[in-house]
């Protein structure tokens, strides 16, 4: 991870200009994933542009049309513990706090969280074939140890999963990603931000080189009455999800008016199912209905040698998390299954 220049950007425009210097130039904010990958020689760069000192993107502000705007350079911890997030968007708070560790959440930024790379073992090991790291080299995970890999939306090129927890909640909350770049500003719906692997698994998302995430908008609806985040993993904390679920329900007299169910740890992006959510609309909030939704969401899921359990696990996790959303106060630290 040597031989790069380091500079601090003072404005977004300055940052965007600086990153044009070369195709290998990179922004750094929290650095928790980028510096890690640089140490493993998975990512190399010739220029690091530090955006932490760009002012104006470190806070939460209310938007005129309702909803709020999360600064991209604000840390995950500050976001999760912000009173507005805790009170109006507790699902987001819960999801953030289920990820990584307190130290990493103090460093990692909201923009950076969206740009995490997969935790696939083979992606991290530069001595094994990996289409995501080295297009055309092959996928070692398909015939390898694939316990942590995808069951939905995978391709013959890549079965890696996207590791974020925060993004699972953002997908459920239908956030919007605001981007600045050499050709001006634009916004993407959250579900359009990350990509499925297809034939180009090396491209994680629809951000182009030179573009930077400046903020994330949340619509006014925060589902603060009925929400839950559940994370299932190989230890109780500080591990990536095998399956996670964000559930947000709007209920009226026990009837589901609106539902959002997003899965993490199962696909190349946070996974939502329009069919599943549509099914639930107008139905009673019962275990039976949640069980049927789970079946719909997992339609088309396919496992590999070591991860087929994720299909049944995801179904059960959806049911449990929907039940937990009926009583959000029963949630446990670390998004563990409640008693």
């Amino acid at each position: 991870m040597n031989n790069f220049t380091y500079s601090k950007a003072s404005t977004v425009q300055d940052a965007v200009n600086r990153v044009q210097q070369g195709p290998e130039a990179k922004f750094v904010a929290g650095g928790t994933n980028l510096i890690d990958l640089m140490k493993y020689h998975v990512i190399t760069t010739d220029a690091l542009i530090d955006v932490n000192h760009v002012e104006g993107y470190h806070a939460i502000e209310a938007r005129g049309e309702g909803g709020i705007r999360l600064g991209a350079f604000m840390t995950n911890a500050k976001t999760a513990y912000h009173p507005i997030i805790e009170q109006q968007y507790p699902l987001l708070s819960r999801a953030i706090l289920a990820g990584a560790s307190a130290q990493i959440r103090n460093m990692a930024t909201n923009g950076g969280n969206l740009l995490q790379r997969t935790r696939c073992y083979y992606f991290y090991d530069v001595n094994t074939p990996c289409n995501k790291r080295e297009p055309g080299s092959g996928c070692s995970a398909i015939g390898g140890y694939n316990r942590i890999m995808a069951i939905l939306g995978a391709s013959e090129s890549c079965i890696a999963v996207f590791p974020s927890d925060m993004c699972v909640a953002l997908a459920a909350l239908e956030a919007k990603v605001n981007i600045s770049g050499p050709h001006g500003d634009r916004s993407l719906a959250f579900t359009d931000f990350h990509r499925l692997p297809g034939n180009t698994p090396d491209i994680d998302n629809n951000l182009s080189h030179g573009e930077i995430i400046t903020s994330i908008d949340l619509p006014s609806k925060g589902f603060s009455d009925n929400y839950s985040y559940l994370k299932l993993r190989d230890r109780n904390s500080y591990a990536f999800a095998l399956v996670s679920v964000a559930t947000a329900l709007e209920l009226e007299d026990g009837i589901v008016r609106e539902s959002r169910i997003a899965l993490g740890g199962v696909a190349h992006k946070p996974w939502r199912s329009a069919e599943g959510e549509a099914f639930l609309q107008g139905k009673e909030a019962t275990k039976e209905n949640f069980t049927r939704v789970a079946e719909i969401i997992l339609t088309g899921a396919a496992g590999y040698q070591y991860n087929s359990f994720k299909i049944e696990l995801a179904k059960r996790a959806i049911v449990r998390n929907c039940m937990m959303a009926l009583n959000p106060e029963t949630q446990l630290p670390g998004a563990q299954p409640s008693r």
């Binding site: 380091y6 929290g30 650095g31 890690d36 530090d50 130290q103 460093m107």
Partner: peptide, 27 residues
């Protein structure tokens, strides 16, 4: 570990705990 996976390098930065292995000194 030098990769943000153990916490042994935790220091306080402006009163907040961070991992010193995952940040550059210049930052």
């Amino acid at each position: 570990c030098d990769h943000g996976q153990c916490g042994a390098c935790t220091v306080l930065c402006d009163g907040e705990r961070i991992l010193s292995c995952l940040t550059l000194a210049v930052m």
